[in-house]
């Protein structure tokens, strides 16, 4: 698969201003902007990085440029959410969709390991899509807990937080210049451990209708807090209440930025 992607990128670079993908050198692996003439044999597919954020950054800086990006399923979902929030221009983006392997899907507990390329004006899929992997077993275990046990669970987990803001910084759909988590009105500066549950619930609240289940926050967390157990349940609730799945559908706007006139809450579930 990797050779196919490298060949495709080489071909597309003749017309594009650059392609965002991972480059491996003796320094390590990180996102880079490949341009025509660059050594595409350095292009690799692991480990994961929030490339949607990189694309947004580059599109804002180079306003006439047209870029490509090598994207997994989670990356394309993040790209969709960023388009909806006007952080990415889909007409200036070409996507090489990479279908993750079964093993990769299992590592991420990924329900949608293949990128959905239908929403994109220009995209190609490389690799054979595999079915979704089973969800994180911690979610089901958590759902069996009582309300008090849940409170204790999160209190214990969030006590480990070192307030590095890594979960926000790595998040491919976090982009605001002014962040509530840095606003003294909501989060007391200099306080460590940050206030429970305020600090973490602000983040969780802002992930509502936005989290694309890429799990990069969890892998970036130095304290090993299982953030996606919380975000998975929020995704589930949002799906049940208003039928919105972040990243799945390019046509429906972000619900919290719209009126709910056309998306009535299921009154039974909302109780």
């Amino acid at each position: 698969m990797i050779q196919e992607i490298r060949d495709l990128v080489s071909e597309k670079l003749k017309k594009l201003d650059g392609v965002v993908a991972l480059r491996k050198t003796d320094q390590g692996t990180a996102p880079t902007l490949f341009q025509e003439g660059d050594d595409v044999s350095q292009l690799v597919l692991e480990p994961r990085y929030p490339v949607a954020k990189t694309v947004s950054k580059l599109q804002k800086r180079f306003k006439d440029a047209k870029f490509g990006v090598v994207a997994r399923g989670c990356d394309t979902r993040a790209l969709v959410e960023m388009v909806k929030r006007h952080q990415i221009d889909p007409d200036r983006l070409y996507i090489v969709g990479m279908a993750c392997s079964e093993e990769q899907a299992e590592t991420c507990y990924c329900a949608e390991p293949a990128p959905d390329l239908d929403p994109w004006p220009e995209a190609d899929l490389v690799g054979d899509p595999v079915p979704g992997a089973p969800p994180n077993p911690m979610v089901a275990e958590y759902e069996n807990l009582s309300r008090e046990e849940r409170w204790d669970f999160w209190n214990q987990q969030f006590t480990k937080c070192i307030k590095c803001y890594g979960c926000r910084d790595i998040c491919p759909v976090c982009f605001c210049d002014a962040c509530s988590l840095e606003d003294p009105l909501w989060v007391e500066p200099g306080l460590l451990v940050p206030d429970f549950p305020m600090y973490h619930l602000i983040k969780a609240m802002h992930m509502t209708t936005r989290c694309v289940a890429c799990r990069q926050c969890e892998t970036a967390c130095p304290a090993g807090i299982p953030l996606t157990v919380l975000y998975d349940l929020i995704r589930k609730d949002v799906g049940n209440l208003i039928g919105y799945i972040p990243g799945a559908d390019a046509d429906s706007g972000p619900p919290l930025s719209l009126t709910l006139a056309d998306a009535p809450i299921d009154s039974e579930l909302a109780k």
């Binding site: 390590g28 990180a30 480990p47 990085y49 590095c164 892998t219 970036a220 130095p222």
Partner: peptide
């Protein structure tokens, strides 16, 4: 960005690193 393939931080950073 963190260095996801580096053995020391293994993709994590503290607020100073970020």
């Amino acid at each position: 960005l963190p260095a996801n393939d580096h053995p020391v931080g293994r993709g994590s950073l503290c607020i100073k690193g970020w």
